[in-house]
């Protein structure tokens, strides 16, 4: 499994850099343009979450983004070392309301085929999302 990693600091101006880098990584792995765009949004949401919530807007803190190839798709991880995500505080947004915030993780869930987070670490949160190649997504409903 080939893994490439980008390390950024926790400033919003870095998000454009993430999008460019991720697009290149995904294109190199044969991911189509539409899926690239979707994953750019998903990873952007996770990096934004790290900047806003894990680091509370504090600049200069590290965020690691990695892309790994595997036979059936790609695995992307976004990792910060700030305040861990608190799943007990997360509420699924009510989309019948006009939300000004709170839809970021919902968007990630919708764009990824699999989405998880790891809090069993000294600090911070590691988010993992999986996107399968077309036709490779396992059918788990059977």
């Amino acid at each position: 499994m080939t893994t490439d990693t980008l390390v950024i600091t926790s400033e919003s101006r870095q998000l454009a850099r993430v999008r460019v880098w991720l697009g290149e990584q995904l294109a190199r792995r044969g991911v189509d343009a539409h899926t690239q765009s979707a994953l750019q949004v998903a990873v952007g949401e996770l990096a934004t979450n790290s900047i806003k919530h894990a680091y509370g807007g504090r600049a200069g803190e590290p965020i690691h983004i990695s892309v790994a190839s595997r036979d059936d798709g790609v695995v992307i991880q976004v990792e910060d070392f700030g305040r861990p995500f608190d799943p007990s505080g997360y509420r699924q947004p009510d989309l019948s309301e006009m939300n000004e915030s709170g839809v970021g993780l919902y968007i990630v869930k919708r764009l990824a085929d699999e989405f998880s987070f790891d809090l069993a670490r000294e600090r911070g949160t590691r988010w993992t999302l999986v996107k399968y190649q077309p036709g490779a997504k396992p059918n788990r409903t059977a």
Binding site: R19, S37, V41, G44, T48, V103, G104, I107
Partner: peptide
């Protein structure tokens, strides 16, 4: 060409 949840907000 790109809008995220912050932009929507």
């Amino acid at each position: 060409s790109y809008v995220d949840s912050s932009g929507l907000g």
